[in-house]
Simulated scan of single mutants.
Amino acid sequence: MSDQMAGGCACGRVRYTVAVHDDDAYLCHCRMCQRSTGSVSIASKNVKQAELCWDGEPDWYDSSPIAVRPYCRECGTSFGFKFKDGSENIDLTVASFDDPSRFEPKHHFGAESMHRQWLNTEGLKEIRTDEYKKLVDKWVEATGEFPG
């Protein structure tokens, strides 16, 4: 059984729907993913390209001799990774889904580049966005309300 799920970029120019058959996702720590996203790791969901429908075509970055990466040229959102060799699958970034909460990491990839100090952050102070008055005030001044 599969569910249709939707996602998109920060500015809304690129949207997608895709059939999702399970909750399995993974964290990639390879240097290519780190550099292309500017993050220490990236959460990805592997899906079938034939079951992915783009509404607003993403731009494609030719990131290496073996892969390309979809992204939005307007806001910079990274959508994932796919091999150039005609593979039937594509990895989508978990955070680009409208509701990423259903996915669960099942493994790490690119472990040679893993920054372990960023994996288990339990115990660190947690600050909610709406508790940061300076940020809330800036939003209210700019838009009249705090997005929440």
Results as ranks from 00 to 15, higher is better:
residue 145 E to P: 01
residue 51 E to G: 03
residue 88 E to V: 12
residue 18 V to G: 03
residue 125 K to F: 08
residue 135 L to T: 10
residue 48 K to Q: 07
residue 100 P to G: 14
residue 38 G to R: 05
residue 139 W to S: 09
residue 35 R to C: 02
residue 26 Y to K: 03
residue 98 D to A: 13
residue 70 P to W: 06
residue 42 I to N: 02
residue 77 T to A: 11
residue 50 A to H: 05
residue 113 S to W: 12
residue 123 G to L: 10
residue 57 E to P: 01
residue 5 M to T: 04
residue 129 T to F: 13
residue 62 D to A: 09
residue 1 M to V: 07
residue 24 D to K: 14
residue 56 G to C: 02
residue 87 S to Q: 10
residue 73 R to D: 09
residue 63 S to W: 08
residue 107 H to F: 15
residue 115 H to T: 13
residue 100 P to F: 12
residue 22 D to R: 06
residue 66 I to D: 03
residue 14 V to M: 00
residue 81 F to E: 05
residue 145 E to Y: 15
residue 40 V to N: 02
residue 137 D to F: 10
residue 138 K to C: 08
residue 48 K to L: 11
residue 74 E to F: 02
residue 127 I to Q: 14
residue 133 K to M: 09
residue 70 P to H: 04
residue 46 N to Y: 00
residue 80 G to I: 01
residue 112 E to F: 08
residue 53 C to V: 13
residue 82 K to R: 15
residue 46 N to P: 00
residue 48 K to D: 01
residue 37 T to N: 13
residue 54 W to A: 02
residue 129 T to D: 08
residue 74 E to Q: 11
residue 127 I to R: 15
residue 69 R to L: 06
residue 77 T to N: 01
residue 29 H to P: 05
residue 49 Q to D: 00
residue 68 V to E: 12
residue 48 K to T: 04
residue 133 K to F: 03
residue 36 S to G: 05
residue 1 M to Q: 07
residue 79 F to C: 02
residue 29 H to W: 08
residue 39 S to D: 05
residue 136 V to N: 07
residue 46 N to G: 02
residue 1 M to L: 03
residue 55 D to R: 04
residue 36 S to W: 10
residue 137 D to G: 08
residue 121 T to F: 03
residue 22 D to P: 01
residue 20 V to C: 02
residue 77 T to S: 14
residue 8 G to Q: 06
residue 50 A to M: 02
residue 124 L to K: 14
residue 18 V to Y: 04
residue 31 R to C: 04
residue 3 D to E: 14
residue 51 E to V: 01
residue 94 V to P: 01
residue 51 E to T: 12
residue 46 N to Q: 07
residue 137 D to I: 07
residue 36 S to N: 12
residue 90 I to W: 02
residue 130 D to M: 11
residue 128 R to A: 15
residue 97 F to E: 06
residue 105 P to L: 11
residue 139 W to L: 07
residue 6 A to K: 12
residue 40 V to C: 04
residue 138 K to S: 11
residue 106 K to S: 14
residue 26 Y to T: 00
residue 126 E to R: 14
residue 47 V to M: 00
residue 39 S to G: 13
residue 116 R to L: 11
residue 47 V to T: 10
residue 25 A to Y: 00
residue 145 E to V: 08
residue 86 G to A: 08
residue 64 S to G: 04
residue 131 E to T: 11
residue 56 G to F: 03
residue 69 R to H: 11
residue 57 E to T: 12
residue 135 L to H: 10
residue 72 C to F: 03
residue 67 A to I: 05
